[in-house]
Amino acid sequence: MANALKSPRWSPYVVGIGIGVLSWATFYFMGKALGTSTSFVGAAEAGLCTIASEHVEQNAYFLKEYGSKAADGAKAFKPIFDWQMALDVALVIGAMLAAWLGGSLKGESVPSLWRERFGPSVAKRYAAAFVGGAILLFGARMAGGCTSGHGISGGLQLAVSSWVFFGAMFASGVGTALLLFGRGGRGEVSNA
């Protein structure tokens, strides 16, 4: 067991089983399905609230995700720092712990595959990451979930919405990767 914790990499099948069993636990003990991207809306709107709270309180999407009714029927809000926000924050810590135990905790600004294709410029990588992140969350919210909420949780519930998302996401990702990287033969199939 100690050796496994110190191993930098686990089999994807072992990790997949682990995530599957974790989803049993969230359903059974918490009545929740794994998901991560709704809280990005909560965090963004909480930030906006500091400069324009009325605007946020009247935003239709914010109300859809976080609105609720008080006992007297007045407009109220669900807590922004909720189950999923705690999950999102803990994701960082859990991964840090895993990387630290496995000896793979390492600061990195430009991943090697990006460097091979687009060069060592940190600014260029950060620009793509920023724009990519914005597109990613826009898409996730439009679809109603991301790789966790739709991909894993929705997939395992055999939801039609989630499998449609999964197919569209994968097709678009393959097309985008082809545009960005071409058919190039670099980095042959790795057997990790």
């Binding site: 991560t36 991207s37 990005f40 999102d88 994701l91 991943p111 990006w114 793509a128 990451a129 724009v131 990519g132 992140g133 914005a134 597109i135 990613l136 969350l137 826009f138 898409g139 996730a140 919210r141 439009m142 679809a143 109603g144 979930g145 991301c146 790789t147 966790s148 909420g149 739709h150 991909g151 929705g154 939801a159 039609v160 919405s161 989630s162 449609v164 998302f165 999964f166 197919g167 569209a168 996401m169 994968f170 097709a171 678009s172 990702g173 393959v174 097309g175 985008t176 990767a177 960005l180």
Partner: peptide
């Protein structure tokens, strides 16, 4: 999650672009 297929598919198509550009998904 409700099947709103234009939203699910459209969002998925946008998501795929972002996922490859960023190289990570939200989680």
């Amino acid at each position: 999650k409700p099947a709103e297929l234009a939203m699910n598919a459209g969002g998925g198509l946008i998501f795929g672009v972002g996922m490859v550009l960023l190289g990570y998904c939200p989680g």
